[in-house]
Amino acid sequence: MPKPQGFRYEDRPDGTVLITHAGRRAAVLRGSRADQFRNEVATADPQLVMARWTGNYKHGNERTARNHPRNRR
């Protein structure tokens, strides 16, 4: 499975974390959720962590899409 790309996060002075994807806001984390995100992004691959936190991760149809005739090579 290809690694998600295009996610960025901004740690703001007011304690919130803004996650964007392709320049558009994907999530805003505040309080304990922001702290938990910061700890996790420091120890794992940031792109995968941001994809999971925004809900844009493993929809369950990857195998179906890969086997579709249009996607076979």
Score class of each variant (00 low, 15 high):
55 G>T: 06
42 A>P: 01
38 R>A: 04
43 T>S: 11
28 V>F: 01
40 E>W: 02
22 A>W: 01
61 N>C: 12
44 A>H: 13
49 V>F: 07
10 E>D: 13
44 A>G: 05
13 P>H: 02
19 I>F: 02
11 D>Y: 01
70 R>A: 15
65 A>T: 09
32 S>M: 10
40 E>M: 07
39 N>H: 00
24 R>G: 02
27 A>S: 07
35 D>K: 08
18 L>H: 02
57 Y>L: 10
11 D>E: 14
60 G>W: 11
8 R>C: 11
24 R>P: 00
8 R>A: 14
23 G>T: 09
67 N>L: 15
60 G>F: 12
63 R>Q: 11
69 P>A: 09
40 E>G: 02
6 G>A: 08
66 R>Y: 08
58 K>P: 00
10 E>P: 00
22 A>M: 13
13 P>D: 10
69 P>T: 13
62 E>D: 07
55 G>L: 07
5 Q>T: 15
23 G>R: 06
68 H>W: 08
21 H>K: 15
36 Q>I: 05
73 R>C: 07
70 R>W: 13
56 N>G: 04
14 D>Y: 02
67 N>A: 15
45 D>T: 12
55 G>W: 07
73 R>P: 15
53 W>P: 00
63 R>D: 12
25 R>P: 01
50 M>H: 09
10 E>M: 02
41 V>K: 04
40 E>S: 08
47 Q>R: 07
66 R>L: 09
33 R>W: 01
5 Q>L: 06
7 F>N: 09
25 R>K: 11
66 R>C: 05
54 T>L: 11
35 D>Q: 11
2 P>T: 07
32 S>N: 11
22 A>N: 14
45 D>A: 10
53 W>K: 05
12 R>D: 07
19 I>L: 02
51 A>R: 06
35 D>H: 05
62 E>V: 05
47 Q>Y: 13
21 H>W: 12
46 P>T: 07
53 W>G: 04
4 P>R: 11
53 W>E: 11
24 R>A: 15
50 M>E: 14
31 G>F: 03
52 R>T: 09
47 Q>G: 10
33 R>P: 00
56 N>H: 11
8 R>G: 10
15 G>L: 01
49 V>E: 08
57 Y>M: 12
59 H>G: 15
21 H>S: 10
1 M>W: 15
2 P>S: 10
30 R>S: 09
15 G>Q: 08
